[in-house]
Each structure stands twice: as structure tokens, then as C-alpha cells.
């Protein structure tokens, strides 16, 4: 069972309080009708499925109920960082070199 830091509650809590919500930073197109079938498919279905750092969404469903983003290593399942919804993708190379 993973431990997850909710950036809204600022607490690290067990996975049972959270629901996984798929890949992050896939914004719904502003005007879907302007998209080709292929572009719409990409939005609907195509996923990075990264082996390594994966940007993904979680919801603190049994807590504050907020959706937030996380970067997690899918090989070790270790969370690198969690951040609020709407914030841009963090630059993890900077973080790593600072460590």
C-alpha cells in the first residue's frame, strides 16, 4: 500500500484514502468539434504508459476529495512529487540535481 502526499491537506496518507485517476496533463480540448477523429482518439485513448517517471492524477477521495497530480516512478512505485491540479509539470531534473 503506497503512501501518498496530498498537496491540499499537506499530509502523507495511505493509498486507501486515494483513487487513481489516470495520466495527468491531458487537457480536454477547448473545442472538441474542431478535432479530427485521430486527434480526438489521441485525447480519449492514447496514453504514455511510461516506464519510469509517470505524471498522473490521484483524488483524495476519502479526504479532501480534491484531484491532484503526481510524478511517480512506475518501476519502483515511488512518488517523486505531488502537486496541485492546474499546476504545470514540474521540472524533475532540477529537483534531482539539487538532491
Amino acid at each position: 500500500m503506497l503512501l501518498i502526499h496530498c498537496p491540499y491537506c499537506d499530509e502523507t496518507l495511505p493509498e486507501l484514502e486515494f483513487a487513481y485517476a489516470g495520466e495527468a496533463h491531458i487537457a480536454r480540448p477547448v473545442d472538441p468539434s474542431a478535432l479530427s477523429d485521430e486527434e480526438w482518439r489521441d485525447f480519449l485513448f492514447i496514453r504514455t504508459n511510461a516506464r519510469g517517471t509517470h505524471f498522473e492524477r490521484w483524488r483524495h477521495i476519502h479526504g479532501c476529495a480534491r484531484f491532484f497530480n503526481a510524478a511517480r516512478d512506475t518501476v519502483t512505485d515511488r512518488f517523486l512529487v505531488t502537486y496541485k491540479a492546474g499546476e504545470s509539470r514540474p521540472d524533475l531534473t532540477v529537483k534531482e540535481s539539487a538532491e
Partner: peptide, 10 residues
């Protein structure tokens, strides 16, 4: 959950 998802993130 779906409503919250759209409301909070989109």
C-alpha cells in the same frame, strides 16, 4: 466522481 473530475480539473 466524474462531475468532480470535470469541475476541478477541466
Amino acid at each position: 466522481n466524474m462531475m468532480e473530475d470535470y469541475l476541478q480539473t477541466e
